[in-house]
Design a protein around this nucleic acid. Structure first.
Length: 787
DNA sequence: TCACAGTGACTTTTT
DNA sequence: GTCACTGTGA
């Protein structure tokens, strides 16, 4: 494509962002402002116009979906972009660690432990703790790694004040390193540590990457920031794109501060704001703006709708979630009758559990749908079992996988025996001069000492793996299939030996770029063995298939089907160690992947969590469960409430043409029906900006009256009145006043306070003895002042 | 070592 | 209402 052609479609700010050079660049890109277009065009421009070697461009995103989209779009503009590194943070980390496994102190055939595996490992590393405690500790360790803190970091105390924690963390690390595997946090933290401590590795990376771009920068955590810093060499061009209003991952360590401080950390930064919204019609945008304005902590920017006027959003009050699902189905079917495709619709919800009601209804009404991310295909027992067999096959030091599979199907090797074997292996490791004793070898050594039944089982177990190892290695006949570690080693040596410090051109040998670009499996020839055959053999020969088959018969599950799906999904990978590692990587690093399902219709309604919608858009969006306790969750105040509000903002701005909000009066939770209060967020939308359907709850009627009285009901925009309202609250809800609450009865206000984010809080002592805090602003329907 | 039954806890959001 | 964990008995 001619460069003028793709540049000509840009607006002036977008253009400025694309052609910018010479200093770090921060692009503050509002929702729907053409952010992806800017990044992809910039990649194309850097290659075509600035002469950058495609493989010297690294673009990092957070989700695989985003990475895939970016890659595809960049390639459409510039075919050479196929050789650029467009990856998620974690897949970059994985790539990096495979190359530098030895320096990082891990096995080159490492696999990635998920959160469950972490918990299991914590339980082994810290003696005598309950699973719940282990889970807390595992979570804290994850946090620590998100902040790039090692067990000896004095700042750990900010994450966990318990004096035992650093020890527990250290014990976990020791245990983890013994397996040769890594956890999610390691995928970022280990590269950072290695880059910081190892000059040659650092220089190597600086030589490879001349451009680093980060998408959704507002959701980066401290470790990821450090990674970016460490990858940035003296002549690296850094460009980050983000929107502080869309920061929704602080619970996972995302640090908005990263984007707020960017200019400080990268001196000379130029900032470009993209505020023209090409996605949504004006009425949708107006609501989004009114809501996000309530947040105190933001850089502040205002989106302008390029598309102009459109349909006014609708707020629908319903009785319960069955009605909610029915309403959604009705809307979808009606529009479908008029030729609107199902895929125009997305149902958004706060928690995955909410998808169930819609699924049931849609199945009933024959509406095709696809659930994004919730089915957790790879977390199913049978699938995890199969994956554990595969992980143990490539890395027999994997203690977690070993424990999971050695007695599954039952081989007479129970917990006690397992413990004995693992302890034995650990002892051997300590005494061994060579180190790296693996569990399979230990098993071989210990077979003789086992009871009769266990002996039989263990022999079968060892035989299985001996055969599988052969199957996997004997398949490795293609001579063009150089193992990745060899390529990596070559690449490393070449750069060490003083390859020219190239900015552009193609001085680096092909095999370096090949090693770097190897994100896609090598194409399979007809005669090649497929990885799926290997996996199928493994599942059959291990007895896993039989085990789950009988399970299916007993409880009517579809485990065999799931196992078959797993096998199918490996058909594109070559049947060798690298293919297997790639397959496992792919699975571990893309948990949100839709269930592999041949029946997924091409035209389907999307069911998706609000978090998962980041970066996506749909013509028609229904945000469901607009109830206090569901969205926002009841325990959210201050900064956390602001984050929930940003999540709402993200949800609203997904809608191109039509937006619906639904709120239920009752909701079944834990199998019992609860009264629901309306979401406080609904009181942040001016009644004049939204059409209301259904029976209005008392609280909402009251809100409408208030708004009308204060002149906000009849067309005045939202915003600005917060301060006035706050004063009103403080003068009415005074210390000492008696109140009545629907649930708790009579009480008296003990204290009043204002939270960090400016919410007015009252602390009430009730006659019944309960004492509770309230935000009077949101309690209009249940809490009232007494005369 | 394993199967079963009773009990308790539980719903954030995810790479 | 569901699931996972615990303790008991075979």
């Amino acid at each position: 494509m001619d460069s003028y052609e793709y540049l000509s479609v840009l607006n002036p700010e977008q253009m400025a962002a694309v052609v910018h050079e010479g200093s770090p660049l921060l692009i503050l890109a509002g929702a729907g402002s053409g952010k992806t277009r800017v990044i992809t065009t910039k990649i194309a421009y850097l290659i075509a116009e600035q002469g950058y070697r495609p493989s010297s461009i690294l673009a990092v995103t957070f989700t695989k979906k985003a990475a895939r989209e970016m890659q595809e779009r960049a390639q459409l503009l510039e075919s050479q972009a196929a050789r650029s590194q467009i990856r998620t943070f974690h897949s970059f980390g994985s790539w990096f660690l495979r190359i530098h496994a030895e320096e990082a102190g891990i096995d080159k055939n490492f696999t990635v432990y998920d959160d469950d595996d972490m918990v299991t490992l914590v339980m082994k590393a810290v003696p005598n703790i309950a699973k719940k405690q282990a889970s807390t500790i595992a979570h804290k360790i994850s946090m620590a790694k998100d902040y790039c803190m090692t067990p000896d970091d004095p700042n750990l105390i900010q994450i966990e004040s318990d004096a035992e924690f650093p020890e527990q963390y250290a014990a976990y690390e020791e245990r983890l390193r013994a397996t040769g595997n890594v956890d999610f946090g390691d995928l970022i933290m280990l590269p950072v540590l290695l880059l910081q401590n190892n000059e040659s590795v650092r220089n190597h990376m600086h030589k490879i990457f001349k451009v680093i771009m980060v998408d959704e920068y507002q959701d980066s955590n401290v470790a990821q920031f450090k990674l970016l810093k460490a990858l940035t060499g003296p002549d690296t061009y850094v460009c980050v794109v983000g929107d502080d209003d869309q920061s929704i991952y602080s619970f996972r360590g995302a640090e908005v501060q990263n984007i707020l401080d960017f200019e400080k950390e990268f001196p000379g930064t130029q900032v470009i704001k993209l505020e023209r919204n090409y996605r949504s019609v004006a009425p949708v945008l107006s609501i989004a703006d009114g809501v996000v304005k309530r947040n105190k902590k933001r850089l502040g920017k205002t989106l302008v709708s390029v598309r102009g006027d459109g349909k006014k959003p609708k707020l629908v009050f319903l009785s319960n979630q069955d009605d909610e699902a029915a309403f959604a189905a009705e809307m979808i079917l009606q529009s479908h009758g008029k030729g609107v495709p199902y895929s125009d619709w997305a149902i958004l919800y706060r928690t995955n559990a909410q998808s169930l009601g819609f699924e049931t209804e849609f199945l009933h009404r024959k509406i095709p749908y696809s659930v994004v991310g919730s089915l957790k295909f790879y977390e199913r027992e049978e699938v995890k079992d199969a994956l554990a067999y595969l992980a143990f096959l490539v890395n027999p030091r994997d203690e977690i996988a070993f424990r999971r599979i050695v007695n599954k199907p039952p081989r007479g090797i129970g917990g006690v025996t397992q413990e004995k074997l693992v302890t034995r292996a650990r002892e051997e490791n300590e005494n061994s001069l060579v180190g790296q004793v693996n569990l399979l070898d230990t098993c071989r050594g210990e077979v003789g000492s086992l009871s009769k039944k266990a002996k039989e089982g263990m022999k079968a177990f060892i035989d299985l793996f001996d055969t599988m190892i052969q199957t996997l290695t004997s398949a490795e006949t293609r001579d063009d299939n150089t193992p990745i570690e060899q390529l990596a080693e070559d690449a490393r040596e070449a750069v060490k030996d003083g390859e020219p410090n190239v900015v552009s051109g193609d001085e680096l040998p092909d095999w370096v770029t090949e090693a770097m670009a190897a994100s896609e499996p090598a194409p399979l020839g007809e005669s090649d063995k497929r990885l799926s055959d290997v996996i199928e053999k493994m599942i059959k020969d291990s007895g896993l298939l039989e085990l789950h088959q009988s399970q299916d018969e007993i409880s009517g599950t579809q485990r065999v089907f799931n196992l078959q799906e797993l096998v199918n999904s490996a058909s594109m990978y070559p049947a060798n160690v690298d293919g297997l590692l790639e397959f496992l990587d792919h699975i571990e690093l893309d948990r949100t992947l839709e269930t592999p399902d041949d029946e997924t219709p091409s035209d389907a309604v999307t069911l998706i969590t609000l978090h998962n919608t980041k970066g996506l858009e749909y013509p028609r969006v229904i945000i469901t469960g607009m109830e206090y306790g569901v969205f926002p969750r009841r325990d959210k105040v201050d900064t956390e409430l602001e984050e929930e509000r940003r999540l709402f903002y993200v949800g609203i701005t997904r809608a191109r043409d039509e937006l619906y909000l639904t709120s239920c009066a009752y909701r079944r939770m834990y199998g019992r029906t609860e009264d629901q209060e309306i979401s406080p967020f609904l009181l942040e939308i001016a009644p004049s900006e939204i059409d209301v359907l259904g029976t209005k709850p008392t609280a909402y009627k009251r809100f409408e009256r208030q708004q009308a009285a204060s002149g906000n009901g009849g067309g005045g925009g939202p915003g600005g009145e917060a301060l006035v309202e706050q004063d009103g609250l403080a003068s009415r809800w005074k210390k000492g006043r008696t109140v009545y609450h629907d649930d708790y009865g009579h009480g008296v206000i003990l204290f009043t306070d204002t939270t960090e984010s400016g919410e007015y809080v009252i602390d009430v002592q009730f006659e019944t003895g309960t004492r509770k805090k309230f935000l009077p602003k949101y309690q209009a329907n249940r809490l009232m002042l007494e005369m």
